[in-house]
């Protein structure tokens, strides 16, 4: 297939909302088989960047390639290789878990027998089989993340793009999701995910990019980016946060 191509390539992505520059020229190369963390503070443009990378949001300039296939020029092929879990978007939540998976599978043009088998397995592994007749809209936040992940995994994509997969997820579910993602990468898949939780990124990722104000500030393997310091320190320095001097808010400790 396309072993020589990177799993995901972004070139000069730009997006402007009204007067605000949300993403100002992002270039990124995600090697196949990597576990890639996209770090950034709130409002840095992570969701906007990932949306443009997977075909949910049309960029003002630039392009995105999945394993060499142009997302915007050859969407059919690119989207076949791609599994996406957006954040803050609804699922078709008036379906039950199993129905939702069947729906996604058939929309992807999969064989019904394969859909059935994989859906049962995914529901089982993600501990969602007990939900039975509960509609997805009535799921808890963690369950919604898990069923979203199952939808993204169902067709066996080569690249997984996850927006905030660990947001609002309890530790048990988070551990389960981490475990599944690790196995997926070990099996040759590539994961790109956004987060602002250093600890998760440090524990999982082989590569890291730090995004702030719509531009990539640091990029490379985890070790290259953090060097000798903890990732959190690097992040705060890069993003331009302030560290407490002990002088301000003195009245707090009265």
């Amino acid at each position: 297939m396309t072993a020589e191509h990177p799993a995901l390539t972004l070139r000069g992505l730009v997006k402007r909302f009204d007067t605000k520059m949300a993403v100002a020229g992002v270039d990124l190369t995600v090697p196949a088989g990597s576990f890639y963390g996209l770090l950034g503070p709130n409002g840095a443009g992570k969701t906007t960047t990932l949306s443009m990378a997977v075909g949910l949001l049309r960029p003002d300039a630039g392009g995105a390639w999945v394993l060499g296939h142009d997302v915007w020029a050859d969407p059919v092929r690119a989207k076949q290789l791609l599994g996406v879990m957006p954040d803050g978007l609804r699922l078709f939540d008036r379906l039950r878990g199993a129905e939702l998976l069947a729906y996604h599978g058939l929309l992807r043009g999969m064989n019904p027998a394969v859909v059935n088998q994989r859906a049962a397995e995914l529901l089982d592994v993600l501990a969602l089989a007990d939900a039975g007749r509960t509609l997805v809209v009535d799921y808890s936040a963690g369950m919604k993340k898990k069923i979203g992940l199952a939808c993204a995994l169902l067709h066996g994509p080569r690249l997984l793009v996850l927006d905030e997969p660990f947001e609002a997820v309890d530790p048990v579910s988070a551990a389960l999701i981490r475990d599944i993602l690790r196995r997926y990468v070990a099996g040759g898949g590539t994961v790109v995910f956004s987060s602002h939780v250093m600890e998760v990124v440090e524990r999982l990722c082989s590569h890291v990019a730090i995004l702030a104000d719509g531009a990539i500030k640091r990029v490379g393997t985890l070790d290259e980016v953090r060097g000798e310091r903890p990732l959190e320190e690097v992040f705060v320095t890069v993003v331009g946060g302030r560290t407490a001097t002990g002088e301000e808010l003195a009245w707090l400790s009265r």
């Binding site: 379906l95 199993a98 069947a102 599978g105 058939l106 019904p112 859906a119 049962a120 529901l123």
Partner: peptide
């Protein structure tokens, strides 16, 4: 719940 995912849909 009875039936496979697809029959449920």
């Amino acid at each position: 719940v009875t039936g496979t995912a697809v029959t449920q849909l």
